[in-house]
Design a binder for these strands. Structure first.
Lengths: 239, 239
DNA sequence: AAGTGGTCTAGACCACTTT
DNA sequence: AAGTGGTCTAGACCACTTC
């Protein structure tokens, strides 16, 4: 059979992705109704539906019965900490408070550059922050962001922001984190991390390396987080 | 609206789940075709399809175009290490070798009993084993299994088995692990774990507590795994 | 050739939200 | 009342596997 064969609904999905990527519909906004899209693309409503089903399964859009289908955003209560897997062993719903410590603009070293798929020596921002539950710091994050896409990022702007970092990046720079991969290791707290998390040196910590991607799986954020797991744990679901 | 309302396809899904649970179709076997099921339940083929779609999304069944829909099994290459998230940083596809160390029948303490949803003092098997990649042990597991469901489990039988533990439990005792939750912490290797994993005491390890569930989210296995993450990492995907 | 799942359509009706 | 997504149907045809 034709080697370039692709089901109609996959082609529609690709067209929808293109429109999303190009910003035809912005995060938080509704996309056109299924019937309208069916008309636009000259296919049946059911085919559009199947395309949107997949986008919804990937969390790129959110369906709301009776209202419409909306472009996902990190700027909503429900998706506020969508990627945060550390939770209290006693209070599942506890939410952390963020304290930004430092923002620097530096040249990417070869490791960072390779992971972010940019050129070595390209400028990158390094953001350092601490997430606390109650009074206890539990996460120290170092976050690398491509300089190109975050012009004008500063400590002051982050400190003035009162929602999540991803909401900030989405609102200020149009960066949309759609999915991420994490690699987790166990490490001992060194001098710096023990201070950041206010624990003794040698305390076992999770080291969580996250690479976040936007459309077409393009990496746009690298993050290393040191997690203190006393009374807390990293949650995962297996299917 | 009727508070007990449930879409037809959800009702069909529930009926299919019931048949799966009751063993009408066994792991590895095909379930009846969509048209046959549609006839049996007196609904359209499309409605059966949507029910099966959900079962497939939850990995309870596997669709094979042109062949049929099969009950999932842990006894197949593709799903062999379905729940194992530790992977080498250099060779993603490396598979571990399992060495069973000990099998004991004991009384469940209150913690274990509560997690497994059984009565304290009910008998449980404790299985201890080491998973190695190459010559290096990387995982030491302690596994609790309800005694009721594993009558006749022994070290010898496990050592004689040459596939995964879940495949064994499925084949020998009809235990089907459908999904699991994991809670991960960072810990320091104590005397026992340092010996099991052949690393110095104090080496940072991941402690992975897994609770595996069968139909109706009934817990059937509790597992604590100590993971050595030198050259390896626990992988996760966020959406 | 026959049987399976996979795609696509068109139309009907339901449930929910907004006006 | 009108518009949206959600369900259900019936029928056609396609792609893949087995016989």
């Amino acid at each position: 059979m034709n080697p370039t064969f692709s089901p109609l609904y996959q082609q529609i999905k690709a067209l929808l992705l293109k429109s999303l990527q190009e910003g035809e519909w912005m995060p938080g906004e509704p996309i056109p109704s299924e019937t309208e899209l069916a008309g636009r693309y000259g296919v049946s409503q059911g085919t559009v539906r199947k395309a949107i089903d997949e986008l919804a399964a990937e969390n790129l859009v959110v369906r709301k019965q009776g209202r419409g289908t909306y472009v996902s955003t990190h700027n909503e209560d429900k998706s506020q900490y969508r990627f945060l897997r550390l939770a209290s062993d006693t209070d599942e719903n506890a939410r952390p408070r963020s304290e930004y410590v430092d923002v620097e603009k530096v040249r990417a070293n070869s490791v960072i550059a390779k992971l972010l798929d940019i050129n070595p020596n390209d400028s990158v921002f390094v953001v350092k922050r601490v997430l606390s539950f109650g009074d206890q710091p539990h996460i120290y994050d170092e976050i690398w962001l491509p300089g190109q896409q975050c012009k004008g990022l500063s400590l002051e702007r982050l400190q003035a922001w009162n929602s999540t970092l991803y909401a900030f990046l989405e609102a200020e720079f149009g960066m949309r984190m759609l999915r991420a991969t994490e690699k987790i290791k166990a490490v001992s707290a060194g001098t710096e991390h023990s201070q950041r998390l206010q624990v003794p040196e040698g305390t076992p910590l999770l080291l969580v390396e996250r690479l976040s991607m936007t459309y077409s799986d393009k990496p746009v954020e690298l993050r290393r987080g040191w997690y203190l797991t006393e009374g807390f744990s990293y949650r995962n679901e297996l299917y």
